[in-house]
């Protein structure tokens, strides 16, 4: 155990951990919102995120981001942000329509919906991983080779953005890390206020507390569920955008590990709790980086899950408790 290294590099490690934790937090929102309303773990949410990363990448490629600079690059990145959000939102809504609504209508047990989610996750990931074959059926694989060619390996947009870095003492701060953290916290505050104060947010909370009474009071449950998936999708799109700015590389199965971690973050903070998702994501990110520093990076995932178990031992409902409908949200 290398305590000396950990303490002498604490600020640097913490920033790295917060930045990745913020991405966990934004993905965790999707899990937490859907769980809050439906008591259902939407395991396909990781693919919602993955499609967002590709939408971002393809937009940058199509608009020639590699050669752009200045204002044009900023415009391209904004377009990429919106396309990532749009793509993730569409996939999330599609999921709700195809994989959940028919089951909820038939009042199927939660376990069935869970299996449906896992199935949908595989289908979505493999559709992306086999996109070269799919394009081939339509004879488009040559025209689209730039987009579908590397179907099963890393797709990179490195070199598009040369973000400024600041050096304070022996700490190097990347402007992207700052952007990621600020954006995640900002989105979380906005969303929290939306759920607390707006009419639609009230509807979400009401459905979460008691779907039947809420329906009697004039809240349309189907619309509310759709809205929940939509918000989760939009947040995953933002997460995808920030992830691509930071890591610059994606792959058809990138969602799997990130999805597991984001779900862990949601449980850590208290599933169903928006603020819990933020706190859980940041705590998980920092714990992973500190753990990597202390024990070696190969222990990263072990540290994350040991932390989860320990926290759940003492606080079985997570750091801030489960509640979308109750007091805290």
């Amino acid at each position: 155990m290398n305590f000396e290294f950990l303490f002498s590099n604490l600020p640097q490690l913490t920033i790295g951990g917060l930045a990745f934790g913020a991405i966990y937090a934004l993905i965790a929102l999707g899990y937490t919102m859907v769980y809050g309303v439906l008591q259902l773990i939407n395991f396909a949410h990781s693919e919602v995120f993955m499609y967002g990363t590709f939408a971002m990448l393809w937009t940058v490629m199509a608009l020639g981001g590699a050669d752009a600079g200045g204002i044009k690059l900023v415009a391209i990145l904004i377009a990429a942000l919106f396309s990532a959000m749009a793509m993730s939102a569409i996939i999330a809504l599609l999921l709700e329509r195809v994989a959940y609504r028919p089951l909820i209508k038939k009042d199927a047990p939660r376990l069935i919906a869970l299996i449906s989610a896992i199935g949908a996750s595989f289908v979505l990931a493999e559709l992306m991983g086999l996109r070269d074959r799919i394009a081939g059926w339509f004879g488009l694989d040559d025209n689209l080779s730039e987009y579908v060619g590397k179907a099963r390996i890393n797709n990179s947009m490195a070199g598009v953005l040369d973000a400024p870095r600041w050096k304070i003492g022996n700490v190097t701060i990347s402007s992207i890390d700052v952007l990621v953290i600020v954006a995640a916290v900002g989105m979380m505050i906005l969303l929290d206020q939306f759920v607390r104060r707006s009419r639609l947010g009230k509807g979400i909370r009401a459905t979460s507390q008691d779907p039947e009474t809420a329906a009697l009071m004039g809240v349309n449950p189907t619309r509310t569920i759709q809205l929940t998936f939509l918000i989760g999708g939009l947040m995953a799109g933002i997460a995808a955008f920030l992830y691509m700015l930071k890591i610059e590389t994606t792959k058809f199965d990138v969602g799997f590990l990130l999805g597991v971690k984001a779900f862990t973050a949601a449980v850590l903070g208290g599933i169903g709790n928006l603020r819990g998702a933020l706190l859980g994501g940041l705590v998980l990110g920092v714990a992973e980086t500190w753990g990597s520093a202390l024990f070696g990076t190969e222990w990263r995932h072990v540290v994350a899950f040991v932390l989860l178990v320990v926290i759940l031992l003492f606080r079985p409902t997570g750091l801030l408790g489960e509640s979308l409908g109750k007091a805290r949200a």
């Binding site: 490690l13 790295g16 990745f20 990597s292």
Partner: peptide
Amino acid sequence: DTDFSATVT
């Protein structure tokens, strides 16, 4: 893995 911030530090 895709985040190597601890390794980089």
